[in-house]
């Protein structure tokens, strides 16, 4: 109080200080608690969805902890990661259509996986992950630099350009797989599925918790970066460092998920857009919501994927792709109505 009072004395007689009317975006609200319970319920459903009879069989209990629990945890972590990635990219590129699938980031991650297999025969998971992260980082950087130089601000051209870039990278990957006889790798990656998840194969996904915490710490800075370089600089921030940080956060999420699970499309498009329509673009207050909605959405999709052709299952990326396409069109129509598509 004292510094402010002094400041006021210096600059004469300002209008009387208004009563503080804080906009406390309180996290623990009734809807949030309900959402938490909904996600927990979905998690429970996920735990008990499957063909193997975990109650009847003798080793049911073991199977439960070897496959069901890891799968559900993997779903939650991946859902949070991909939704958060989308949110960060929306802010930084100022475009609601941008997410790893529409910027080529995912394809770069795939190429990174492939590079790991080419450089080291029989690479460990950590090597594959590193390859995916490094390539995602480079790929996203290329996309950001491209955006910067061409100054594309039309909301449609940006994702189209990104997808074209992705297609080029993907074509190169395909060529390499054919050339080096590794189509298995890229195929497994392309159809992102949680079916192979089991104890001992998914634990690296916990890295996502660290990324989420860092994102939360830098949430206000990233939101300011979303207001543009000029505003960020005027507020004393280093815009370019923030962009690098955002890029790194995105690359780690996409890379880890690509190496452990595979391609998870459109989650970063669906979730942040829905949250933004209701709650706006403030990253800090939205992050818990985005993570939660991401978890719920992907778990629901995975349950559908497991149930739809029981006793077999389809890859969750198929369900997400379908849902994502629908939401993509919905956003397009909405923006057109409000005249924001130029």
């Amino acid at each position: 109080m004292s510094t402010h009072a002094m400041h006021e004395a210096e600059i004469g007689s300002p209008p009387p200080l208004a009563e503080p009317r804080p906009e406390r975006n309180r996290l623990i609200t009734v809807p949030f608690v309900l959402a938490v319970f909904a996600v927990i319920a979905l998690g429970a459903v996920s735990l008990f969805t499957g063909v193997y009879d975990i109650w009847g069989r003798e080793d049911g209990r073991d199977m439960f902890f070897i496959t069901r629990v890891p799968r559900t945890i993997a779903l939650m972590l991946t859902g949070a990661a991909m939704a958060m990635t989308g949110l960060i990219m929306h802010l930084v590129t100022r475009n609601k259509m941008v997410e790893p699938t529409t910027t080529g980031t995912t394809e770069w991650a795939g190429l990174g996986l492939l590079a790991a297999y080419l450089l080291v025969p029989g690479p460990t998971l950590v090597m594959r992950m590193t390859g995916a992260i490094v390539f995602s980082f480079v790929g996203t950087m290329i996309f950001f630099l491209f955006l910067r130089h061409v100054r594309l601000r039309s909301s449609l051209i940006v994702p189209i350009t990104g997808m074209m870039l992705g297609a080029v990278v993907s074509a190169f990957s395909t060529f390499m797989t054919l050339r080096f006889n590794m189509s298995q790798v890229i195929e497994n990656w392309f159809i992102g599925s949680f079916a192979p998840v089991q104890a001992g194969r998914y634990e690296h996904l916990w890295i996502i918790v660290a990324v989420t915490l860092i994102t939360f710490l830098y949430a206000n800075r990233l939101t300011i970066a979303g207001l543009g370089e000029d505003v960020a600089t005027a507020l004393g921030l280093h815009y370019h460092r923030l962009i690098l940080l955002a890029n790194a956060l995105v690359a780690v999420c996409v890379g880890v998920v690509a190496a452990v699970i595979g391609n998870i499309p459109f989650l970063g498009l669906i979730v942040p857009n829905i949250v933004s329509m209701i709650r706006g673009d403030d990253l800090r207050s939205n992050l818990p919501w985005v993570c939660l909605t991401g978890m719920g959405t992907i778990t629901l999709c995975d349950i559908v994927a497991r149930v739809v052709i029981m006793p077999f299952e389809v890859p969750v990326s198929l369900i997400l792709g379908t849902l994502g396409a629908a939401v993509f069109i919905l956003i397009l129509l909405r923006q057109r109505r409000s005249g924001r598509v130029r």
Binding site: E23, R153, G226, L227, A234, G280, D282
Partner: peptide, 26 residues
Amino acid sequence: LTILRQENHFITRLTVRQLVGFGRFP
């Protein structure tokens, strides 16, 4: 010192209060 450029701002979905609040960031 602070500076504001002419309006070509991308329209973020922040509330007026959230935006003004970022002025306190430094």
